[in-house]
C-alpha cells in the first residue's frame, strides 16, 4: 500500500514540476471552449443549449491527449522495468498511476469547468450538473485512456493513434455524461437515470482499465 501511495505522490510531483501537466491540460480545455463560439457563432442561447456538450468534448480531448505519454516516459527512463520487477501487481501500479494522473489533470478540468461555463452562458443549475457529471465522468475517461497509454508502450508513439484507438471506447461515457447534464438543463428528463449509469460506467472502467493496461504493458515489454 505504501508503495502505491509513494507512486501516486511521485507521479503527482512529476506532474507539478515537469511541464506543468495540469496547467497545460486546463489551458487546452480553455482553448477548445474559446474556439467553439468562433465555429458556431456567438449566439448565447445556442451556446447555452449546447454548452454542456462543448465542455464535455473539451474535457474528453484534454484528458485523452494528456494521457498518451503516461507509461511511455516511464519506459524511457527505466522506471517501468523497476515497477515490473516490484512485488506490487502491475494492475495496481497502473491504477495508482491512473489515479495520480486524474488528480493532476482530470480534477483541474473539473475545477475549471464552472469558470468556463460562465463563458457559455450556462445557468447555475446547469453548471452544477456539468461539474457533477464531469467529476464522475473524468475518472472513467482517464481509466479507459489508461489502456491507450499502456498501448503506447508497444506503439512507441502516442498522440493521434492512441486517441483514435480510445475515442470509440469512450462514446458511452460521453453519451451518458452529456445526457445527464442536458437533463438538468432542459429539465424534461430525469437526471438520475443517465447519471447513475455514468457512475456505473465509471466504476466499471475503474476495474477494466487497470487490468487491460497491465496486460498491455506486459504484452509490450515481453
Amino acid at each position: 500500500m505504501t508503495a502505491l501511495i509513494a507512486l501516486v505522490v511521485r507521479d503527482l510531483r512529476l506532474a507539478v514540476r515537469v511541464g506543468g501537466g495540469a496547467f497545460v491540460g486546463v489551458l487546452f480545455f480553455l482553448a477548445v471552449v474559446v474556439v467553439m463560439p468562433f465555429a458556431i457563432g456567438p449566439d448565447l442561447n445556442l451556446l447555452r443549449r449546447i454548452g454542456p456538450a462543448i465542455l464535455w468534448i473539451g474535457a474528453l480531448l484534454a484528458s485523452l491527449l494528456a494521457l498518451d505519454r503516461l507509461f511511455a516516459q516511464d519506459q524511457e527512463d527505466g522506471t517501468l522495468d523497476l515497477l515490473l520487477t516490484a512485488r506490487t501487481p502491475l494492475e495496481l501500479v497502473a491504477a495508482a498511476k491512473g489515479l495520480a494522473h486524474w488528480i493532476a489533470t482530470g480534477l483541474p478540468l473539473v475545477l475549471a469547468a464552472p469558470v468556463l461555463s460562465l463563458l457559455l452562458n450556462l445557468e447555475p443549475l446547469a453548471i452544477g450538473a456539468v461539474v457533477l457529471t464531469l467529476l464522475v465522468g473524468t475518472p472513467a475517461l482517464t481509466f479507459i485512456g489508461l489502456v491507450g497509454a499502456a498501448l503506447a508502450v508497444t506503439l512507441r508513439r502516442g498522440g493521434l493513434l492512441v486517441a483514435v484507438l480510445i475515442l470509440p471506447l469512450s462514446i458511452p461515457i460521453l453519451i451518458f455524461g452529456i445526457s445527464a447534464s442536458n437533463a438538468a438543463v432542459t429539465g424534461g428528463l430525469p437526471f438520475g437515470a443517465p447519471f447513475t449509469i455514468l457512475c456505473a460506467l465509471s466504476l466499471g472502467s475503474l476495474v477494466l482499465g487497470p487490468i487491460a493496461a497491465g496486460a498491455a504493458i506486459r504484452a509490450g515489454l515481453d
Binding site: 499502456a150 508497444t154 484507438l165 471506447l169 458511452p172 487491460a212 509490450g220 515481453d222
Partner: peptide
C-alpha cells in the same frame, strides 16, 4: 508484440461493444 497489443485492445473492445450498443440505443431513443 503487435499481436498481444491488438489482442488487449480487441478484448477491451469486445467488453465495450455491448455497452456502446446499449448506450447508443439509449441515446437514440432520446
Amino acid at each position: 508484440r503487435a499481436g498481444r497489443a491488438a489482442a488487449v485492445l480487441t478484448l477491451v473492445g469486445a467488453v465495450n461493444i455491448p455497452i456502446i450498443k446499449f448506450s447508443v440505443d439509449w441515446w437514440n431513443t432520446l
